[in-house]
C-alpha cells in the first residue's frame, strides 16, 4: 500500500449510509423535489453557523441574569429567540434546570430528535441505539461512562425528546466562576453539558 498518500488524494470509501444519502439526494434533485443548492445551504449552515455555541450563549446568559433564567424556564422559545436563535427542529423548546437535587439528561429513544437551533446537529453517539436504550434503562452507568458521577440522592430525570418537543439542559454554574464574564462562561459550557452527559467545571477554562 502507498505510504505517502494523504486522505485528500484517496478519501476513505463512503459508508453504506453515506451512499444511501447521496442516492436519495440525487433522486430528489432529479425529480425537482429539492435543489442541491438548498441541501448544501442547510449543511453549511449547521456545520458552520449553528452549533452548541448558541446553546452556550443561552446558558451563560441564564447564569448571569436571573430574570432571563426565569423567562427561559417558563417560555424557552421566546427566551431563546431573544438571543436570535430559533427555527426548524426547535419549534417547541423546553429547558430543564439542573439543581443540587436533580440532574437532567436528554435522549430521543425513537430516533435522533435534538434541539438544532441551540445545539446544531446531534453527535453520532446520541443517535446510536445503545445510548437511546441505555439512557432510559441504566442512566447512572451511562453517565459514569461519560465521566459523570452523581451522589446517590440526586434524582436523575430523563427527558425523551420527540418530533414536537425538544429539550435543553440548563446545567448548574460551577463554583470558581464568580466574576467571570459571559464570554468566559460560554467557553466552559460544552454540548454534552447541555445534553446532560457532562458537567461544566471551572477548570476547563484554563485551556480556553
Amino acid at each position: 500500500m502507498s505510504h505517502e498518500h494523504h486522505d485528500h488524494h484517496h478519501p476513505r470509501p463512503a459508508s453504506a449510509v453515506e451512499l444511501r444519502a447521496q442516492a436519495l439526494e440525487a433522486l430528489l434533485a432529479e425529480r425537482g423535489l429539492v435543489s442541491t443548492d438548498a441541501v448544501d445551504a442547510v449543511v453549511t449552515l449547521y456545520e458552520q453557523d449553528v452549533g452548541p455555541q448558541n446553546g452556550a450563549k443561552v446558558v451563560a446568559r441564564a447564569w448571569v441574569d436571573d430574570a432571563y433564567r426565569e423567562r427561559l424556564l417558563t417560555n424557552a422559545n421566546a427566551a431563546i429567540a431573544e438571543l436570535g436563535f430559533g427555527g426548524i427542529e426547535g419549534d417547541n423548546m423546553i429547558v430543564v434546570a439542573n439543581t443540587a437535587g436533580v440532574h437532567n439528561m436528554i435522549v430521543c429513544t425513537l430516533c435522533s430528535c435534538y434541539p438544532w437551533p441551540v445545539l446544531g446537529l446531534p453527535p453520532t453517539w446520541y443517535k446510536s441505539s445503545p445510548y437511546r436504550a441505555r439512557a432510559v434503562s441504566e442512566p447512572r452507568s451511562v453517565l459514569s461512562e461519560f465521566g459523570v458521577t452523581l451522589d446517590d440522592d440526586v434524582e436523575i430525570r430523563i427527558w425523551d425528546s420527540s418530533a414536537e418537543v425538544r429539550y435543553l439542559v440548563l446545567p448548574m454554574r460551577p463554583s470558581g466562576t464568580e466574576g467571570w464574564t459571559q464570554t468566559e462562561l460560554e467557553a466552559i459550557i460544552t454540548r454534552d453539558c447541555m445534553i446532560g452527559t457532562a458537567l461544566p467545571t471551572a477548570r476547563e477554562s484554563a485551556a480556553a
Partner: peptide, 8 residues
C-alpha cells in the same frame, strides 16, 4: 442504580 424518572 436506584430510582430515576423517565418523562415522555
Amino acid at each position: 442504580e436506584g430510582v430515576w424518572t423517565v418523562a415522555l
